[in-house]
Structure formats: C-alpha cells, structure tokens
Amino acid sequence: MPITLSRILMVEDESDIQTVAKLALELVGGFCVEVCASGSEALTTAPTFAPDLILLDVMMPGMDGVTTLKALRALPALTTTPVIFMTAKVQPHEVAHYKALGALDVVAKPFDPMTLSKTITSIWHRNAA
C-alpha cells in the first residue's frame, strides 16, 4: 500500500452520481479517478488501472458490490487493494457486515461532495497507521 493516495477506481452504476463523485474527488481532493459502471467492467479495468483504492457501490444491477469485491480479490493484482463501500444502506449491522467482508469502511450516501475527499483520505490514513 503506497503512503499517499492518488489513484481511485470508482464502481457506480448511477451516471449522475458518477459525475458528481468524480468531480468532487478530482476537483476537491485532486485524485486521479477512473469510473466503472458495473462490477464486470471493474474486473477488466482494475488490473490495468492499478488503483490505490476502490470505491464500490453496493446495490448495482447484475453483479452487486459484495460479489464484485469477492471477484476483485480473486485477481492476483487486487488481492490487497483497499476497498471502501459507498452505499445508502448504512444500518449498523450492514456496516458491520461490509467490514467483516474486508472493506476498510463504509461511506454513507448521500455524501457531502465538499468533504468526501477528506473523509476518504482520513479512512486511508487510519488504515495505513
């Protein structure tokens, strides 16, 4: 895991949220962001993009976030890449479940675009420490 966070792969099926989040992360956080619209697209993009961190939506048509996480972990390049779930389903037992699956943390939707980058950076540093 690199010391600084720069490359983020975002997996999100809603194009509006893709645009807003990408803009927020690029403009406010200054990250290099790559967007995938589905789990299967993420599986092909991720190995070549080589992200420092993956932001993963939970509820997606076809392959959902949990299945995508498991499939990503099966790829040799992505066995240890940190993953943060972004979801509206943030009841405490759901959060505990996502963490048990190996996610670093969960970011609740709707997120504040002005603080999203800060939130993600602090999760990243907490994990690194």
Binding site: D16, I17, T19, V20, L23, A24, A88, P110, D112, P113
Partner: peptide
C-alpha cells in the same frame, strides 16, 4: 430516494 438525492446534493454542493 437517497440515490437521486445523492446526485442532487452532490451537484449543488460542488
């Protein structure tokens, strides 16, 4: 409800 709201709030926030 949260999904469209995420876009609205995010866009307006930016």
């Amino acid at each position: 409800l949260r999904t469209p709201l995420t876009s609205i709030r995010g866009a307006l926030g930016l």
